[in-house]
Design a protein around this nucleic acid. Structure first.
Length: 153
DNA sequence: GCCAACGTTGGC
DNA sequence: GCCAACGTTGGC
């Protein structure tokens, strides 16, 4: 059981969108960064906890709690020439990009990035490091607990 | 829209 | 393998 922070642009897919989806679950397609992919491929298991983060929006921050509900599998959008995420170099027999299914558990209050930065116990969070752009980053159990407490307030 | 930081590409 | 040029992310 591990914990992750996963970024999504709410203009594309927000926590509300996932809660409205069948089974409150969506495939986390579109990851096109090797480090983020490797976290999914090598680190994720069903049951892992996910902080659902809204990025590139007026108020970036944690917007909900979700859960990994599948093993990693090939991201179909890499094979679709119509898709924004199409990758001509990816082959069916040798997929380059993968995704996992993510189930939204609940929407939380918006816990803004600016507030996260003020919490001493969170200063080592990967997503808070200078220049951090990864769309998927690991979260330690301690960080998860701290954030869970903040979300209860 | 700006721009810092990081990632990728491709010539050599 | 180096590295310049270019592209992307994402907060502000």
């Amino acid at each position: 059981m591990r914990y992750w922070l996963m970024k999504s642009e709410p203009d594309e897919i927000s926590i509300d969108d996932v809660l409205a989806a069948p089974k409150q679950t969506i495939p986390w397609f579109g990851v096109r960064n090797y480090q983020a992919r490797n976290f999914m491929r090598d680190g994720m298991q069903p049951g892992d906890g996910v902080l659902f983060y809204h990025s590139s929006c007026p108020q970036p921050g944690i917007a909900g709690i979700a859960e990994v509900v599948s093993a990693p599998y090939p991201d179909d959008t890499q094979f679709d020439p119509q898709s924004h995420y199409y990758d001509a170099k990816a082959k069916r027999e040798e997929p380059r990009w993968i995704c996992v299914d993510v189930k939204a558990l609940r929407k939380t209050r918006l816990l803004p990035l600016s507030e996260l930065r003020t919490i001493a116990q969170l200063e080592d969070m990967v997503v808070l490091q200078k220049g951090s752009r990864l769309s998927i980053t690991p979260v330690t159990p301690g960080q998860w607990k701290t954030i869970a407490t903040l979300l209860k307030e």
